[in-house]
Amino acid sequence: MNRRIWVHTGRILLAVAFWVAAVHKVLDPAAFAGAIHQYGILPPTWVNAAALTLPWIEITAAGALLMWPRGRPGAALVLLGLLGVFVVAMIINLWQGAEIPCGCFSSSLEADPLTWRSVARNLGYMVLAWWVLLDSGPFAWQQARAKV
């Protein structure tokens, strides 16, 4: 019972974090595109397309995580994949000593600079997404059956 509560809490935390993170990206996609460009990962002409679609993918997946019980594993998989890409891009830039905005909860360098703390935060979200995935397959069913 306790485990279920923790998993649900983790799922809600993950979804809310992605919704909050998407707000500034949706409201000011040009600034978010600037933040993506500074990562230097995507070809310059692809940056706007990423800035326009990424926040809506985040919103959709986070929504499914909360409101579509059968779609939870798929939503967790999408968020896990996104977080994995973000973490790799962050590590590459921090390794190169780049002083750029994280682009996570703000596109401004002053408000949300990219630091190792940003990486740790995303790794925490990855653990939550992994946990939701673990809770979504036959393994979870098997474990529940063992307790009967």
Binding site: W56, I57, A61, P73, G74, W130, L133, G137
Partner: peptide
């Protein structure tokens, strides 16, 4: 390897969510 990852329907869900999010962005 979460068991969910071995199920094709989970990958279809993920692809569907990616598509839906992209369409919303457009």
């Amino acid at each position: 390897l979460p068991a969910a990852l071995t199920q094709p329907q989970v990958w279809r869900q993920a692809a569907g969510l990616l598509l839906l999010g992209t369409l919303l962005g457009v």
